[in-house]
Design a protein around this nucleic acid. Structure first.
Lengths: 368, 368
DNA sequence: ATGAAAGCGCTAACAC
DNA sequence: GTGTTAGCGCTTTCAT
């Protein structure tokens, strides 16, 4: 059995000619009807649709792409799908893209330049209409490669200042300010911060937002209370251990992302300090997982839905010649606090509650 | 600016003719060289490769697919990427597929028939070469739809007995037996089981494997200790609460999946029963998340790598005319226990350990 | 071993 | 408004 044979047997699918024959019109008319070009006689159109349904016609995307030069595929580059931040983003992005008539081609850099390069080559080969780069640590040469090929691009936080590059500007400050104010409102004054790797732009921005928010309230943060992590659980654990060893303990810790906060929870679980009774913990990102931790984590939400929606829209703005927002280059994304159970009054300010082991029932609140 | 204009401007990419001209050969020869067809004169081939590199030629996938009838795209249908079971599977599948020259088109059913139908239509439209259905609860009409279209198919656990359908047979019993024996070895005799929704085939199979393994050891399980959950955290929590209310408490609980086990952890966290000191908990699946729970979960691993590798290979066996395993219809998948920290000796059999709050240091062991 | 030429299924220019 | 026709970029006969 030759490959040829197989493909023929499978390709057997009905095509535009079959429909045309059945509806007794030309293939051009079928094409017009299927593409909803309005200059077709309604009578004919009806006949065509009827034929389409009768023979079960499905337009061949490859042929379409070949001739029109547009694949209707959106590239989405992330770090790794197993990084808990991404699944939700991917899901939203996919939903939105599909709803708007695009397919999405997902690719992971896995933090590996070689992989990334081949990924871009593959996207090029499949002729994607545009690509959204949602990895937060953006590698320079990745950007370079992409820009060279000239397709519409979307980046997060920062990107080259080029006509077909759009960037999603996340307002980290907003959510972090809410976190600081939430803690301050509960009575906290001694708040530490565990940052991400500072060479990562977004990590530096988040840390700065923390410092600024604290300063606004006239609260001082000792240098030892701002410790650098790596946005991983292990690094969060290590950072908390450092804090634990540093002498005076803060009453609250804000983390640059949720995985870090989970690490903090683990570090504290190995001590006698209970969360949130004796120490409050706040995360950042609001990944799915935060609902499953013990206790569920208070965190700053960066809405995946907003991020995805902006990415898809910005991409379309770059792809479609007369998109209403074709000229918009910066797309703002908001953040806000979601209060769960890992924050409470500072230790010592809470009336004793009897039975240890029964978690203090702090009301679930939501700040919008 | 017309759409036409845009596409032309982008399509500008070099094509096979450019290479042919440059290498002073026909396009047929270029095609042969690029496709590594061995009947080409080595000299010519060298010239062609040189030209390819010089002009930066990348074959156009759409054209290739159009003429050859094979898209080199593998469809992968999952339930939802936000279900923690799937990201790893997707990643492995993608890695393997790409390494073998395929692209993958991922789609989620989201447990929604309408969505699923449109998903299949999209896969059809994109002309995937085959599809792997990795959702565990398989809906009858999904199967039907897929089978109708005649492309090679892969299912998990069960599928119709058709020539181009292959099924991945997961050996649940193996891992569950290991879990039961692990607990028995620690001294447990009173073990409960929280199942998944029993209309889901895989859930029933897992529960049966539990009953059988217990029977093998001569252990009896009161009816009240086999409770039905829904494979969600909430249902796990509810099931554990039922167990808690049922009078005599088991010393260990095995769950049909990890999310259920996490729910159990949450339920127990609201009581005075500590894990694993007073009650042991075992999950199933070994999702990523189990490393992040408190305590890290002992669980039965269903290797995503094995699952993905088998899926890709089985798909290729169905797609490629003379694949060595073209005839193999059933593909076995093994499972095995991964011991972490949520299991320990039954309560009362452990020497008192002083300081509460400091977790008992059970050695990490791994059973293979 | 190589080239010429016939399509794959479709869109879009052009003619009527 | 509708049909005819020329490709899109490639693979694969078929002839040489």
């Amino acid at each position: 059995m030759s490959p040829r044979k197989i493909s023929q047997q499978r390709r057997a699918n009905v095509n535009i000619h079959d429909v045309a024959r059945r509806a007794r019109v030309s293939i051009a008319t079928v094409s017009r009807v299927v593409n909803r070009i309005s200059t077709v006689d309604p009578e004919l159109a009806k006949r065509v649709w009827k034929a389409v349904n009768e023979v079960g016609y499905v337009p061949n995307t490859q042929a379409r792409a070949l001739v029109s030069g547009r694949s209707h595929i959106l590239g989405l580059i992330i770090s790794e799908i197993t990084n808990p931040f991404f699944p939700e983003l991917v899901q939203e992005f996919d939903n939105l893209a599909v709803a708007q008539g695009y397919e999405v081609m997902i690719g992971s850099t896995s933090y590996d330049p070689a992989r990334t390069e081949s990924l871009i080559a593959r996207m090029l080969q499949r002729n994607v209409d545009g690509v959204a780069v949602m990895t937060f640590g953006i590698e320079e040469d990745l950007v370079q490669k992409l820009v060279e090929h000239g397709f519409p691009l979307v980046f997060v936080d920062a990107g080259p200042d080029l006509p077909n590059v759009r960037v999603l500007k996340v307002n980290y400050g907003e959510g972090i300010r809410q976190a600081v104010q939430h803690l301050a409102a509960l009575g906290h004054r001694r708040i530490a911060f565990i940052s991400g790797p500072l060479e990562m732009r977004t990590a530096a921005t988040r840390r700065d937002a923390f410092s600024r928010s604290m300063a606004e309230l006239g609260l001082v943060v000792p240098a030892a209370w701002i410790v650098e992590g790596r946005h991983t659980m292990e690094s969060g654990k290590a950072a908390m251990e450092k804090l634990l060893a540093a002498g005076e303990l803060p009453t609250a810790v804000i983390c640059s992302n949720d995985m870090t906060a989970i690490g903090v929870l683990h570090a504290l679980d190995e001590t006698t300090h209970r969360v949130p009774k004796e120490i409050s913990v706040v995360g950042f990102d609001d990944i799915h997982l935060t609902q499953f931790t013990l206790p569920p984590l208070t965190t700053v939400q960066m809405s995946c839905h907003d991020l995805a929606a902006a990415a898809v829209e910005a991409l379309r703005a770059g792809i479609e010649p007369d998109h209403p927002k074709a000229a918009q280059r910066e797309w703002p994304i908001r953040t806000h606090l979601v209060v769960r159970r890992s924050t409470n009054f500072p230790r010592g300010t809470l009336p004793a509650l009897g039975k240890a082991g029964v978690r203090d029932k702090v009301e679930r609140r939501r700040v919008d």
